[in-house]
Write a protein that binds this DNA or RNA. Structure first.
Lengths: 142, 142
DNA sequence: GTCAGTGCAAAGCTTTTGCAGCGCG
DNA sequence: CGCGCTGCAAAAGCTTTGCACTGAC
């Protein structure tokens, strides 16, 4: 079990939530991911292991996890995707290939510093930021 | 007529597109905006002036404008929004207030430089980037 | 005259909600 | 044993598509 997974279960228990089949499976699947997944991808993946899972429960679990800041919701042109939000605050952003649809993570300290600076310069108290780069990946450029 | 509006009509004509009622109205409305609008906001605004406008035509016009790189499509949690893409390449990003839903534009040279650098550091040829900051605006912080 | 553009209505998707039953604590 | 969690089905948006008609070039 990853540190995030333990943190997630602890936070849920602390918020008075009871452990149910669907949400437990969503958590353990997310914990094993390198990058973001759509609700449908999560549902399909879980369905192959347990025929009883319902799509609505996947959405409900994700909503709760987002509300407790355990998961980040990302907006893409073809719908939302979700990924674990590490308690360390460490995070990454995404690159999407317009040709093949592939999504990859990347991290960049200089970009983070620029983003933090922008928040301070405006009247806003910035809670979160999303960055999405779109273009042609190395393979599709060929 | 703004420079963008003239540029848009010229580009459409050059692509062999014929001028129709709906798309002309969408263009003249977008040209007058300071920030992004949803398809429904565009539809509602045009409907009050011309009862014949159809929502499907608004979507079709926006698709074409996005395809010709005259308009940028932005993904928000409650759907897509659209705004003119200036031929100068000059552009801005968005701040959204989680409390009141207000969306405001901002521009930051340091952020743009950081974004451009990231593109070069990876195998990607980056065509576009989107940045969305979320938080509490000055009014809602009170 | 041809064919892109248009409005309407219907369909497609993702996401949410209602409801009755299950099961965690 | 109460109430949160679940699955199913239905509903609710946003967006796209089919079709016949209109009108720009």
């Amino acid at each position: 079990m990853t540190a995030w997974e333990a943190h997630a279960r602890e936070t849920l228990a602390g918020a008075g939530r009871r452990a149910g089949r669907a949400r437990e499976l969503v958590i353990s699947l997310l914990a094993r991911q390198q990058c973001c997944l759509s609700a449908n991808e999560i549902f399909d993946s879980l369905r192959t292991k347990d025929r009883r899972i319902g799509l609505a429960s996947v959405y409900r679990a994700l909503d709760q996890l987002v509300g407790l800041q355990l998961v980040q919701r990302l907006e893409f042109a073809d719908g939302a995707r979700y990924e674990p939000l590490l308690p360390s605050g460490e995070h990454h952003h995404h690159l999407m290939c317009d040709d093949c649809g592939k999504v990859e993570p990347f991290a960049d300290g200089g970009l983070e510093r620029a983003l933090d600076r922008v928040g301070g310069d405006l009247g806003y108290r910035v809670e979160a930021h999303d960055v999405l780069l779109r273009g042609a990946c190395a393979e599709c450029r060929a």
